[in-house]
Write a protein that binds this DNA or RNA. Structure first.
Length: 338
DNA sequence: AAATGAGTCAACCGCGCCGGA
DNA sequence: GTCCGGCGCGGTTGACTCATT
C-alpha cells in the first residue's frame, strides 16, 4: 500500500465527509495497527490526515509518558520557557515522553497561575511590578517611579531612609511554599536585615541575596551578606526563580570570586542569553560599586575591581539586547526594554 | 439532587516555513 | 520566481469532569 500524507484531507476537510471530534477506541486501534504496518501514512477512517497525525503524536505514540508532571518536569518547563517563551514544541523536547500540547496545557492550567500567585509575570518571568499587583497596597507603588528603570529604584536601597523602606509588605512572598519548585530555590525564611513583618517589594528582591546565606559553599559571613544587601539588584533580569541561572549568578555574585565566576559562566554555551545579560550587568555593578572581587578558582578571572569591559561587551553583544556597555543605567534600560 | 462554575485536556484551526515541481 | 502541498507549530475551542452552591 502506498502511504499517503498526513495532510490527506486537510485542505479538503470541508469538502470531504471526514469525521471530527473525539476518537473512539476502535479508531485508535485502527490507527495504531495501521501505523505499525505502514508507518506514518495513509488513513482510512474518514478522518482528516492532520487529525490522525495529531492523535498519534499526542496520544497513541508508544513512547509517551502519561500522568502528572513531576516537580523536576515543572522546573524544566519554567526554565526553558523563560528562555524560549511559548515555543511549546521546543520545550517539550526537554521532556522525554511529553508532547507540546501537554506542556502547553499544563502551562496554561497550572504553572501560569502559580507564577502569578508568586508575583511573577508568566510571560517575562520577571516580577510583576506593584502596578500589576492589585493585591499590593497602593502605598507601596508610591515609592516606584515607572519612568525609571527598576535598577535605579533598587540601587537606592542603601540610601533610603528608614521611613521610605516602610512600604507595604509584599504579599505574595508570604505564601511562598518551600515545597513549591517555583520558589523553593529562593527560600526567604529568616531575614538578616529586616524584621519579617517589615518586608516589602524591595526586600523581596533582596531575598535572592539572602538565599546565598543558605549556601555554605560560598562561605559567607553574616557581615558579608549585610554588605551585599546594600548592593543593587536588577529586577527585570534577576527576579526569575530559575535555580539554574540565579543559583550560579547569585552565588558568584556574593561569593569572594563573584565576578570572575559570573564571567566564566558567560563563556559557557549552555548558559542562556538572559543569564549572560544578567551576569554582565552584575559585573558592571561591581565596577560601579568599586568593589574588589578577586577570583579564587582557576576558572575564575582575577578582577580586583578592574573589570575587562571588552570581555563583558563581547559576551553581551551577541545577545543583541543592547548597543553598549558604557553605563550601568544604559544597561539597565536596555535590559528592561529587551 | 440539580445547577452552576472552574479547571483540564484532547482536538481543531489557521498560519508560516520549507522543499519540490 | 512562484505555486502548491506537506509539515509543524501555537492559539483556541469545546467536551468533559469535578467541586461548590
Amino acid at each position: 500500500m502506498k502511504a499517503i500524507s498526513w495532510e490527506m484531507g486537510h485542505h479538503c476537510c470541508s469538502k470531504q465527509k471526514v469525521k471530527r471530534g473525539l476518537w473512539s477506541p476502535e479508531e485508535d486501534e485502527k490507527l495504531v495497527k495501521h501505523i505499525t504496518i505502514y508507518g506514518h501514512g495513509c488513513w482510512r477512517l474518514q478522518r482528516c490526515g492532520k487529525s490522525c497525525r495529531l492523535r498519534w503524536i499526542n496520544y497513541l505514540r508508544p513512547d509517551l509518558r502519561r500522568g502528572s508532571f513531576t516537580e523536576q518536569e515543572e522546573r524544566t518547563i519554567i526554565d526553558v520557557h523563560r528562555i524560549l517563551g511559548n515555543r511549546w514544541a521546543q520545550i517539550a523536547k526537554h521532556l522525554p515522553g511529553r508532547t507540546d500540547n501537554e506542556v502547553k496545557n499544563f502551562w496554561n492550567s497550572c504553572i501560569k497561575k502559580k507564577l502569578i500567585a508568586k508575583g511573577l509575570d508568566p510571560n517575562t518571568h520577571n516580577l510583576l511590578s506593584p502596578h500589576h499587583l492589585p493585591i499590593l497596597n497602593a502605598n507601596s507603588s508610591k515609592n516606584i517611579d515607572p519612568t525609571k528603570p527598576v535598577f535605579a529604584i533598587i540601587n537606592n536601597t542603601s540610601s533610603q531612609t528608614k521611613d521610605a523602606k516602610k512600604v507595604q509588605p509584599f504579599q505574595p512572598r508570604l505564601s511562598m511554599d518551600s515545597n513549591d519548585p517555583v520558589i523553593s530555590h529562593h527560600l526567604f525564611e529568616n531575614s538578616l536585615n529586616h524584621e519579617s513583618s517589615d518586608l516589602n517589594w524591595e526586600d523581596y528582591n533582596c531575598f535572592l541575596k539572602k538565599d546565598v546565606g543558605h549556601d555554605t559553599t560560598v562561605g559567607l559571613s553574616n557581615q558579608t551578606l549585610v554588605e551585599s544587601t546594600k548592593m543593587p539588584v536588577l529586577l527585570p533580569l534577576s527576579c526569575s526563580s530559575n535555580p539554574l541561572d540565579l543559583g550560579t549568578v547569585v552565588q558568584s555574585w556574593a561569593g569572594n570570586s563573584g565576578l570572575g565566576s559570573a564571567l566564566e559562566h558567560t563563556r559557557r554555551p549552555e548558559v542562556s542569553q538572559p543569564q549572560m545579560v544578567y551576569q554582565g550587568v552584575v559585573a558592571q555593578e561591581f565596577v560601579n560599586e568599586g568593589l574588589d572581587f578577586t577570583g579564587g578558582g582557576e576558572d575564575q578571572c582575577q578582577t580586583n575591581g578592574d573589570i575587562d569591559l571588552e570581555f563583558i561587551e563581547a559576551a553581551l553583544m551577541p545577545c543583541g539586547m543592547f548597543s553598549n556597555v558604557g553605563t550601568l543605567d544604559q544597561l539597565a534600560w536596555d535590559c528592561k526594554l529587551a
